[in-house]
């Protein structure tokens, strides 16, 4: 899968927000809040081809967590991203 084009990740205090700023974005008023780890993953795979394993490996390396925990986080994150229609 791949991140959709037209989004920009912005920081807001200690939070992050993904904003549809590009001409490619269908809904220009779409904003999606992200926590720090989701923002880290988005930045890491933005514009590249990736799958669940890519994200799991990134989480394990960055946060030193077990595969089991990382898998659980990534499964729920990917559901959120699909629902928000920001990956395809």
């Amino acid at each position: 899968m791949k991140t959709k084009k037209g989004f920009v990740l912005r920081s807001l205090g200690r939070e992050f927000i993904l904003v549809a700023e590009g001409l490619e974005a269908a809904d220009v008023n779409k904003l999606i809040s992200m926590n720090e780890s989701a923002a880290f993953l988005w930045k890491s795979v933005e514009g590249k081809e990736f799958d669940a394993n890519t994200l799991i490996a990134l989480l394990m390396e960055e946060y030193g967590i077990t595969r089991e925990v990382a898998e659980k986080d990534v499964t729920s994150l990917l559901e959120t991203w699909k629902r928000a229609d920001i990956i395809n």
């Binding site: 912005r10 807001l12 904003v19 700023e21 590009g22 220009v28 904003l31 809040s33």
Partner: peptide
């Protein structure tokens, strides 16, 4: 919250966000 306030503002001001310098400035 900070995030809610940002969203309220975001939909209320003018500008072309696909022009990066403009979007950055507005942010």
């Amino acid at each position: 919250s900070l995030l809610e306030a940002y969203v309220s503002l975001y939909v209320s001001y003018s500008g072309y966000r696909f022009i990066k310098e403009m979007a950055d400035g507005l942010h």
